[in-house]
Design a protein around this nucleic acid. Structure first.
Lengths: 132, 132
DNA sequence: TAAACATATGAACAGATAAAAATATGTTAG
DNA sequence: CTAACATATTTTTATCTGTTCATATGTTTA
C-alpha cells in the first residue's frame, strides 16, 4: 500500500507510519520510527539551534575572543573591534540573553565578561574542527 | 589629544591608536592594543562563525541528531523529519560543505553519516550549557 | 538640578537565509 | 537506449538578522 512518490502529500494528514517514501519503505519504516523515538524534545533541539545561532556571527565571535582575554567595557570593545557603540551593545544583549556573557556596572561604564566556561570549550572544538 | 566622542569618525581613516573613545582612554588604549595583538586572524574568526552558523538551524540540528544514531538516506531523512526532499538535500549540502556530514552513494540512494566526532562534542557542550 | 558621558533601546534599511517549486543530474532496471 | 526513481540544483519568495541612526536611560560631577 505504498505510493511511489517521495513527497508527502500535504492534503492528507497521514500518520508518520503511513507516509510514503522510497520503494523500500517497508524496510526503512521501522528505522525511521526507532530513530524518532530517541530524538530529544523539539524544544531542546530548538534551544540548541538558538544557542549556536548566537555563535554564528563574526562580530559576536570577536566579542567572545576579546572577553577570553579580559573583561572590558562597551566603549573599549567598540574601539577594539572598530565598530560603533550601538552595534556592540546590540550584540552584547544577544550574548547576555544566551547567558554567554555577563555585565557588571562600575560607575558610568559596564564591564562585560564571560559568563560560562562552556563557551571556551565550544569555541575550542570549533577551532579544532576547522583545522583539517 | 583625545576627543570626547565614542564614535569613530569615518572620514578620517585613523590608526587604531588614535581612535577616540571614552575619557579614560589613555588608560585603556594599551589594553585595547594588547588584546588586539592576541586576536586570531580575521579569517579564522570568520570561518568559526560560519561553522557555528551551520549548527544554528533546527533542521540541521535535527539532521545531525538523526545521524548520531545511524547513517540514513535522503529519502528516509525527509520522512523522519517530516520535510520534503528538496529541503533536506539543501541542508545536507550545507552540512557537507562544513564537513560535518559525508555522503556515500549506494545505487540510487545516498547515505549520509557524521563526518567528524567534533560534532558530538560541540553539541554535547551546547546541551550542557542549556541545562542551567 | 543640570551637564556630560556611557550604555541601552527602538525603528528602519540592506543583506542573508530557509523553504518551496520546478527542473536537472545521476543511477539502475528492463 | 528508455523509463523510473533518488538526489541535487536553481530560482523565487518570505522571513530573519545585523548595522546604523536617533533617542532614551542611567550615572557621575559640578
Amino acid at each position: 500500500m505504498l505510493a511511489k512518490e517521495c513527497e508527502i502529500p500535504e492534503v492528507m494528514n497521514l500518520a508518520i507510519n503511513d507516509v510514503p517514501c522510497c520503494e523500500e519503505c517497508e524496510v526503512h519504516e521501522e528505522k525511521v520510527r526507532a530513530v524518532n523515538e530517541k530524538m530529544p524534545d523539539e524544544d531542546e533541539l530548538y534551544d540548541l539551534a538558538e544557542l549556536f545561532k548566537v555563535f554564528g556571527d563574526s562580530t559576536r565571535i570577536r566579542i567572545l575572543f576579546v572577553l577570553f582575554q579580559s573583561e572590558m567595557c562597551v566603549c573599549d570593545l567598540a574601539q577594539t573591534l572598530n565598530m560603533n557603540q550601538s552595534a556592540i551593545s546590540h550584540q552584547l544583549k544577544i550574548l547576555k540573553q544566551a547567558k554567554l556573557v555577563a555585565g557588571r556596572r562600575e560607575g558610568k561604564s559596564v564591564f562585560y565578561s564571560l559568563a560560562d566556561e562552556h563557551v571556551r570549550t565550544i569555541i575550542d572544538q570549533g577551532r579544532e574542527h576547522i583545522e583539517e
